[in-house]
Amino acid sequence: MSPDSQSVTRLLQQWRSGDSCALDELVPLVYQELRQLAGRCLYSERPGHTLRATALVHEAYLRLLDADINWQDKAHFYAIAARVMRRILVEYARAHTRQKRGSGKVHVPLDEVVVVGPEAAEIVADLDIALQRLAAIDPRRSDIVQLLFFGGLTYEETAAALDISPATVHRELKLAKAWLLREMGQPRAS
């Protein structure tokens, strides 16, 4: 049975009104949707199709929520989805860096087509820590980066989710990026 928009909407409202348990129920729903969408994208045979993995959050939103949901709930959903995605990815990245740093145990993947290089995994783990620090001094800038990077939203979607203008997103992002880069250590060539 696929979760329906009404229950997701209801859970969002419960969560907003302070019911922390609602989040525990939301996360699996959102996760399942993300996974299903991801699976379909991976196996779609459209030529030239590139997977915008984290843009799935947006599609999950379209599928999971009522059309006439108010913007606060919409913003909350994006926030949760981006957060779920971030948790998923960071945990995954950490597990991989652990493996690499582990007691010399060699991990031989049998069937994984793509293998995350330790570098990407480490960058994601570092980014997560930097974002946590940014959230402590400037939560909105941290949210913007989370929505863009982990939520896969466009600037316009991010702006709508936070109820600010796209121009503000651009502007705020400048300092956020500079701060994160500095926090993550030496700026890397890119």
């Binding site: 993300l34 996974r35 991801a38 699976g39 994208c41 991976l42 997977l51 915008r52 993995a53 984290t54 799935l56 995605m85 998923i88 990815l89 995954y92 990245a93 994984e112 087509v113 793509v114 293998v115 995350v116 290089g117 570098e119 990407a120 995994a121 960058i123 994601v124 980014l127 863009l148 990077f149 982990f150 400048k174 300092l175 990026k177 500079a178 701060w179 994160l180 880069l181 500095r182 993550m184 700026p187 890397r188 890119s190």
Partner: peptide, 22 residues
């Protein structure tokens, strides 16, 4: 730092995401 790009981090996230959704 604002002279440099954070694009590498965004790409790293996408890379991990692609792996993870498998």
């Amino acid at each position: 730092s604002s002279k440099h790009s954070l694009g590498f981090a965004h790409r790293a996230v996408l890379k991990v995401a692609r792996e993870q959704v498998a």
